[in-house]
Structure formats: C-alpha cells, structure tokens
Write a protein that binds this DNA or RNA. Structure first.
Lengths: 146, 146
DNA sequence: CGCTGATAAGTTGTGCACAATTGAATTGCC
DNA sequence: GGCAATTCAATTGTGCACAACTTATCAGCG
C-alpha cells in the first residue's frame, strides 16, 4: 500500500545525512565520555587547541553556532575547569575564552579520538577524503542558498 | 599559536557530517514551517505516509530514535491533529499511530520539499546518489561498530 | 557631546537526542 | 496457574540547536 507519490524516506540525502551524523557522534560518545566532554564541547576544545584565546563570536563562526548555544556550553566547560572566560579590557562587550592548564593538557588525551571514527567507518582513506570534500561542497552550497 | 599535533578541525569527517546535516535541515526549515512541521516531525510523517498505522517501536527502528524522543514528538503531532494514537486492543502495551485525514492531506503539500534540497545542494544528481550511497555505507558500518 | 545604529554576549522558550528509570502488559517456562 | 524475564511506551533529567529578545558596550556622525 502506501502512497506511491509520497516522498520516499530512503531516497533522501537529508535523512542519510541526519542519520550518519548521529551515528558518528554515537561512535564518538564513549570515547569523549572518558574525557568528560560531549561532542559539541569537543568541537569547541578543538578550535581552542588550534588557537587561543578566542571570542565567543569567533567560535560561533568557526562552528556555525550562535551565542544561544555557546554561552551555556562555555559555562559548562568553565565549570569543568577546562576554560576561563575573561571580559576583554579594550572592548567590554567581548569575552575571551582561554584554555586552562587542564584544558591544554586534555589535548593529548584527545589525540587518538579521530582515528577511532576512521577505523569504525568501514571506508577507505580515499573514500573518507572524498566524502569530506563532497560534504564541504554541500555545506557551502546549502549555506549559500539561505 | 596552534598545536601542530592537535587534531585539526577542518580535517574531520565527523565535523563535516555534523555541519552538513545542520545546513540541510536549515534549508528544509522554512519549507517545513509552512507545513507546521519540524524536521524530525516531517520524518515521522514520511514513514506514516508510506505505510500506516505504525507502532512507536516500528517508527523508532525506521528512524533510529527511541521512545524518549518519539513519545513527546508524537504527542505534538497529535496536538496538531495530524495523527491519532490508539492503544492496541490485542496488546495493550502497544500504541498504534494512525494518520488523520488532515495528516494524509498534508502529504501532497509536502511532495515538493525534497526537490528543494536537491536544487540548493549544488551537486549533480549523480553526486547526490553517490553521496547517499556512501552515507548509507557509513551509517551501517558505524552502527555495526557499537 | 550626544544620539543613533550596530555589535557582543547572554537569556528565554521550544523542540529534539539520548541515557536511565518506571510501570504496565505479555511471554515463557515450570 | 504462577512467577520471572522480557517488551513496550512513557517519564525524567541533561545538553544541544535555534529563534527571539534583552542588555551592555561601542562606533560613527552631526
């Protein structure tokens, strides 16, 4: 039965994305749990490990998240003593997010995490590369269409 | 500046997935808003448009969601009068989710939605096909690794 | 200087995700 | 039949996402 003209769920790229994304964070979850982080918290730490300190707005641009998401998330990272938020002296609107020593130290414990996904993915390095590239093109196009 | 050995954010497939998935639902959002649906609600309706009624557990298997997510979501769909939940007579544990006439009628209004993503994606039909296939393989492998 | 508009971060409210628990109904097995 | 183990849906609690709004600060311009 069913309705032949109804959009078919299994045909949709959007569902495939949604599903694969949740599956990937599910694989990360137990690894990150050992670090005491959620996946979005891990993303913020990745950005800070690259370069710090960063403003809240800067973090938001890098990750595509707004202050409504980041403000409480950063408070939780601060409660974990991984991060410190300091109001900027030159511009009192800005908040600079600094790593603590503990936050910096966590970097080495996290260094093995990405390899786990690669191992669990069941795709070749080349396929993963191509996937990442296609997803990048897709994200850019979708953002452009808004 | 920068720790050369820190995992690089832009290299990660996982972030690309996370980002592309949110971008895709962001493209869907204004379209679905006209139908009065969120993206997960739309997914549930897609499953029901294919075949109804369905049990909560069945919906969960199809979408990879548990009752903690589905129960309140289905209540909202019921409040929108798109769906009815009926306790099964043979097995009183089960709840069968039925479409209402309004729920069935919404199908035709939704039929143009998937084409929008394809148009906004900036990828060829072939690239989309390949992407969906790779994502499917990835999801399966990731689920298998849990 | 003082005002207007822009910008930064935070807050509020809604709706997923998901772990963990609960409670009711059913199945299996003796 | 009687009882343990299982199954199903719902509930509770935490943490994202995101829209809408608030508050504080700053920049530009007359």
């Amino acid at each position: 039965m069913g309705m032949p003209d109804a959009p078919r769920l299994d045909r949709q790229v959007c569902f495939a994305l949604y599903s694969a994304s949740r599956a990937a964070t599910a694989v990360y979850r137990p690894l990150l749990e050992e670090l005491g982080l959620t996946y979005p918290q891990y993303l913020v730490m990745l950005v800070l490990w690259e370069n710090e300190p960063r403003g809240v707005r800067e973090l938001g641009e890098e990750l595509g998240l707004d202050s409504g998401t980041l403000s409480p998330l950063l408070k939780r990272l601060e409660a974990l003593a991984l991060v410190e938020r300091r109001r900027s002296a030159e511009d009192e609107r800005r908040v600079a997010v600094h790593l603590t020593d503990a936050g910096r130290a966590l970097s080495s414990k996290a260094s093995g995490v990405p390899q786990h996904l690669a191992a669990a993915a069941g795709l070749s390095a080349h396929e993963l590369d191509q996937l990442r590239e296609t997803l990048g093109k897709l994200s850019a196009a979708l953002h452009g269409s808004l």
